[in-house]
Amino acid sequence: MKKIHKILISLVLLLSVGIGTYLLIGNKVTEAKTPYKEITQKQLQEKISNNEKTIVYYYKKDCQYCKQASPLIKNSVKAFKADIYQIEVDKYDGIWEERNMVGTPTIVYYKGGYEISRLEGVKTQEMYNRWFSAMKKVN
């Protein structure tokens, strides 16, 4: 009986340590820093007006396609060491018309005050990599 009691106590302790570790590490993983920098519509317009080279990821929090595309885009951003800004489109009235958007996710590269290239919808990792590679060459 004492042996079963010791085994149960050991299992409870082991399970407690496992759950505690998961909660600590799990939260750190989900809080991992994103490579995207938040930017407002006004800040973006200033960058475009100042002829700054800027890549912007337009997204919606509740967009299933954005949730599929975001990790792929993030991989490309890291691989090509790209600076990228993000705008949550639901925060800004009129942004769809102002930026000629038909859906999310949308990535746009601005240079010299103009839109140079745009990628709309969910793409493959290879397509994102090709796009970021091409935008790097445009610089």
Score class of each variant (00 low, 15 high):
Met1Phe: 14
Met1Lys: 13
Lys3Cys: 03
Ile4Phe: 14
His5Gln: 12
His5Phe: 15
Lys6Thr: 01
Lys6Gln: 14
Lys6Phe: 11
Leu8Lys: 12
Leu8Arg: 13
Leu8Met: 14
Ile9Met: 13
Leu11Ala: 14
Gly18Arg: 12
Tyr22Phe: 14
Tyr22Thr: 11
Tyr22Leu: 15
Leu24Cys: 10
Ile25Ala: 13
Ile25Arg: 09
Gly26Trp: 06
Asn27Val: 03
Thr30Asn: 13
Thr30Val: 13
Glu31Cys: 00
Tyr36Ala: 04
Ile39Gly: 06
Ile39Asn: 02
Lys42Phe: 03
Gln45His: 13
Lys47Asp: 10
Ser49Gly: 09
Ile55Trp: 04
Tyr59Arg: 11
Lys60Ile: 10
Lys61Gly: 15
Tyr65Gly: 07
Gln68Arg: 11
Ser70Gln: 13
Asn75Gly: 02
Ala79Thr: 14
Ile84Gln: 04
Ile84Val: 00
Tyr85Lys: 10
Tyr85Val: 05
Gln86Trp: 04
Glu88Thr: 07
Gly94Asn: 09
Trp96Val: 06
Trp96Phe: 00
Glu98Val: 05
Gly103Met: 06
Thr104Asn: 01
Thr106Pro: 03
Val108Pro: 01
Val108Gly: 01
Glu115Lys: 02
Glu120Tyr: 00
Val122Asn: 05
Lys123His: 11
Lys123Cys: 01
Thr124Ser: 15
Thr124Val: 05
Gln125Trp: 08
Met127Glu: 15
Tyr128Asp: 01
Asn129Phe: 11
Phe132Tyr: 03
